[in-house]
Simulated assay, not measured.
Amino acid sequence: MSQSASTALGKHTTTARPARWLLPIVVFGLPCVTVLLPLLTFLTYSFWSMEGGRPVADFTFDNYVKFAGDPGYVGVYFSTLWMTLFVAIFALIAGYIIAYCIWRLDGPIRNILLLSSVLPLSISYIVKIYSMRNILGFSGFLNQILVWSGFLSEPSRTFLFNQTAVTISMTMIYLPFGILPIYLALDRIPRSLIAASEDLGAYPWRTFTRIVLPLSAPGAVAGGMFVMVLALGDFLTPQMVGGTSGFTFGRAVWSQFGLAFNWPFGAALAVVLLLTVAALMALANLLVRRT
C-alpha cells in the first residue's frame, strides 16, 4: 500500500470514529434530555417545600404526607382511577368490535375504514372536545335523536357537565388509540389458522374464542392501556365537559402548577400519577405474558 493510500485510510478512520459515536449519543441522549431529565426534575421538586411563595430546596416528605393525609386528594385519585377504568373498558369493547369488523373485510374498503377510524388522531384536541360538547349539549345531536326516537319527551341536561359527560367524551376521544393496536394484533393472525379451523368444522364462535381472541389479546390489552393512561392524565376534557363535577386527578395536578403555584406539591402529585402509570404498565405486561 502506497503512502498516500495509507494517509487517506487513516484520515477516513479518524473521521469515521466521531460519526460512529454520534449516532448512539443522539439515540440515547435525546430521550434522556427530553424525557428522563424532566422526570428527574419533577422528582426533585416533589421533595422541596414552599416558603414565602417560593420553592425551597429543603428535602422533605411533607408533600407526599399531605397527599396521603388529605381525604379530598385521595378521594379524587381513586375516583379518577375508577372513571378511567370504565373509559378503558368501554373503549376496549367498542374498539375491538370496530377493529374486528374492519379486519374481516377485504379490498379497498378495508383500508378506507381503517384510515377513517384513526383519522381523528390528526384532528385538534380542542376541536374534538368542542365537538363532544355539541353532541352532548342540551340542544345537541344526542338529545335530538333521543327525543325524535321517543326515549325522551324533552331534551335532558344529564349528558353534559357531569362525570357521565367526562366518561363518554374520553371514550370517544381516545377510542382510536384502542382501535389501532387491536387491529394490528388481528392483522398478524395467519388466515390459514382461520381456514384450518373452518375446515375442521368449528363454528365461527368457537374459532373466535379459541383462535382469534387469544391471539389478539395482547393488542387488546395494549389498546386498553393506551386509553387508560391517556385518560388518567387528561385535565382538559374534565374541565371542558365536566364542569364542577369533572374534577379529576389530572386537574388537581394542573391546578397546583397553574393556579396555586405550589410546584413542589404539584410535582409530588405528578410523581404519584407517574408511579400509577408505571404500575398499570407492569400489570399490562403481566397480563400479556399470561395470554
Results as ranks from 00 to 15, higher is better:
residue 88 A to Y: 03
residue 89 I to W: 04
residue 89 I to A: 09
residue 90 F to A: 11
residue 90 F to K: 01
residue 91 A to S: 05
residue 91 A to W: 00
residue 92 L to R: 00
residue 92 L to N: 09
residue 92 L to D: 02
residue 92 L to Q: 01
residue 94 A to W: 11
residue 95 G to I: 04
residue 95 G to N: 05
residue 96 Y to G: 05
residue 96 Y to D: 02
residue 96 Y to A: 06
residue 96 Y to P: 00
residue 97 I to R: 13
residue 99 A to R: 01
residue 101 C to F: 15
residue 101 C to Y: 15
residue 102 I to P: 00
residue 102 I to H: 02
residue 103 W to A: 09
residue 105 L to E: 13
residue 105 L to S: 15
residue 106 D to Y: 10
residue 106 D to I: 08
residue 106 D to R: 14
residue 106 D to S: 14
residue 107 G to L: 05
residue 108 P to L: 08
residue 108 P to A: 15
residue 108 P to H: 09
residue 109 I to A: 13
residue 110 R to E: 03
residue 110 R to D: 05
residue 111 N to G: 14
residue 111 N to T: 08
residue 111 N to A: 13
residue 112 I to Y: 11
residue 112 I to V: 15
residue 113 L to M: 11
residue 113 L to D: 05
residue 115 L to V: 10
residue 115 L to M: 13
residue 116 S to E: 11
residue 117 S to K: 05
residue 117 S to L: 07
residue 118 V to H: 08
residue 120 P to S: 08
residue 120 P to F: 04
residue 121 L to S: 10
residue 122 S to W: 15
residue 123 I to N: 10
residue 124 S to Q: 09
residue 124 S to D: 12
residue 124 S to W: 04
residue 124 S to T: 06
residue 125 Y to C: 12
residue 125 Y to L: 06
residue 125 Y to W: 10
residue 126 I to S: 11
residue 127 V to L: 13
residue 129 I to G: 02
residue 129 I to R: 00
residue 129 I to M: 03
residue 129 I to D: 02
residue 131 S to E: 06
residue 131 S to I: 08
residue 131 S to V: 08
residue 131 S to K: 05
residue 132 M to L: 06
residue 133 R to P: 00
residue 134 N to A: 13
residue 135 I to R: 00
residue 136 L to E: 01
residue 138 F to V: 15
residue 139 S to F: 14
residue 140 G to T: 11
residue 140 G to S: 04
residue 141 F to K: 13
residue 142 L to S: 08
residue 144 Q to P: 05
residue 145 I to C: 10
residue 146 L to R: 06
residue 146 L to H: 06
residue 146 L to N: 03
residue 146 L to K: 01
residue 147 V to M: 00
residue 147 V to L: 07
residue 148 W to V: 11
residue 148 W to Q: 13
residue 149 S to F: 12
residue 149 S to I: 12
residue 150 G to N: 05
residue 151 F to W: 14
residue 152 L to K: 01
residue 154 E to A: 12
residue 154 E to R: 08
residue 155 P to L: 04
residue 156 S to Y: 03
residue 156 S to R: 04
residue 156 S to A: 11
residue 157 R to L: 15
residue 159 F to A: 03
residue 159 F to L: 11
residue 160 L to R: 00
residue 160 L to N: 02
residue 162 N to D: 07
residue 162 N to Y: 04
residue 162 N to A: 09
residue 162 N to Q: 05
residue 163 Q to F: 10
residue 164 T to L: 14
residue 164 T to I: 09
residue 165 A to L: 01
residue 166 V to C: 01
residue 166 V to W: 00
residue 168 I to V: 07
residue 171 T to G: 07
residue 171 T to R: 05
residue 171 T to W: 04
residue 172 M to S: 15
residue 172 M to P: 06
